[in-house]
Design a protein around this nucleic acid. Structure first.
Lengths: 228, 228
DNA sequence: CAAAATATACAACGCTCGTTGTAATTTGGC
DNA sequence: GCCAAATTACAACGAGCGTTGTATATTTTG
């Protein structure tokens, strides 16, 4: 779909033609517009203008039209952010290198801060996610499921196994459910910020966001810390 | 706006003409359709059909057209659910009648269950809320603010003062911020259920929902309990 | 440069939708 | 049953949008 990778360059032309591949320009513009306006409000003309392409080119690349384009960027955007989230997770909470007990709070806080940072770095993506939430009843179940499996569910599983690793080493007490601990961690970190920032429409000042993040981490450690 | 209350019945005709007041039928239908389809996808014709009214009648009652209708039901639906949430809050966590320490978990769990029940009883409302989240960038700031003040913010403040009352009586430790404790309580209760139920599209079996709810309450008490 | 693949401009079709005007019809109060 | 208010049916306008076909232009490849 987004395969800018290693197709045969022996016979067929490589997909890079113009200054930047038109296909990726279209995908990026579609992410922007769909994220800002949602599926119904977004128009092909707007996406074409934002991409610096003509509407006809969009239909050449996505014969399925608006629906196929939306499905494609659901996957694309989700995978991109998932990779970024997993990278931060491994950076600050690598199961191979468990932290010192004294450094646990520091590492969890660093992870939380990094994730909150992603929410502003990829504002379009999370705006798109909100639209997916809202329009879930109008998206085919298979597409919704593929999207979850391409992003959120994977991240949830990885966080859960990181929690399990911390539990195995006695750094936290997962209370019989690493998956639940993972959900509670993410909920305590993100809920208040998304709420107070009007879901990204009017971002919080960084120090305020930091305060809320660290409060969430401390609450999590009170609920799931092994010693205190 | 929805004033079915006490207007003068001395001169002007009371607004109830047909079997049910057409205005309220329109408002209810609009809640249903806007909640299901969102602002852009919803059409006046659909709302009229659902209300058993003609489109012209809608424009007679709401001269501002689609936008005014949407603004009206934002307020109406929010106030309705807010009242219900506050009623449950006062029922299970009345600041005047603080619970016995032994009954705190029982009462918090009862409150949490009641709130989760509201999420299914008023599915349309919460679906509408998700659409508001997603379309926040296309809703005037004043309207968004009035909506928050008519519902979510009030509930948040009431929960916060309930938490403060519990803290004053030594039943919990609010850790310097009753408001934050309130947000964390609601986050721990609702996040996993909304997530796992595909945001209400495919509801969880009741016993599973109950399990997640009580796990959230226990986590909250570990984080904010005064003794343990 | 020539050929082939790709992108564009342009027009057009069909459909949906928000909105309004008007005349006819129904409804409820007296 | 009469009157006034409310509701309806109906037609129509205008705009926006998804989509397609076609002919032309542009870029890449050989």
């Amino acid at each position: 779909m987004t395969g800018t990778g290693s197709e045969g360059k022996t016979r067929t032309a490589p997909p890079r033609r113009g200054r930047v591949d038109k296909a990726t320009a279209i995908v990026q513009a579609a992410c922007e517009v769909f994220g800002r306006d949602g599926y119904s409000r977004a128009s092909i003309d707007t996406i074409a203008a934002e991409a610096g392409a003509s509407t006809r080119t969009i239909y050449n690349h996505f014969p399925g039209g608006k629906e196929e384009l939306f499905r494609s960027i659901m996957q694309w955007s989700s995978e991109r952010v998932r990779d970024e989230q997993l990278a931060q997770l491994r950076r600050y909470l690598d199961p191979e290198r468990p932290p010192h007990p004294d450094d646990l709070e520091r590492d969890l806080l660093a992870l939380a801060r990094a994730w909150v940072g992603l929410m502003t770095d990829f504002r379009n993506h999370f705006s798109l996610v909100r639209h997916i939430y809202a329009e879930a009843g109008h998206i085919p179940a298979e597409v919704l499921d593929a999207w979850q499996e391409a992003g959120p569910r994977v991240v949830g599983r990885e966080v859960a196994s990181a929690m399990a690793a911390l539990g195995d080493r006695g750094l936290i007490d997962v209370h019989d459910s690493p998956a639940q601990a993972a959900v509670h961690f993410m909920a305590l970190i993100c809920t208040e910020i998304t709420q107070r920032s009007y879901w990204g429409v009017s971002p919080l000042p960084p120090e305020e966001a930091d305060r809320l993040t660290s409060a969430g981490v401390r609450a999590f450690l009170r609920a799931y810390g092994s010693s205190g």
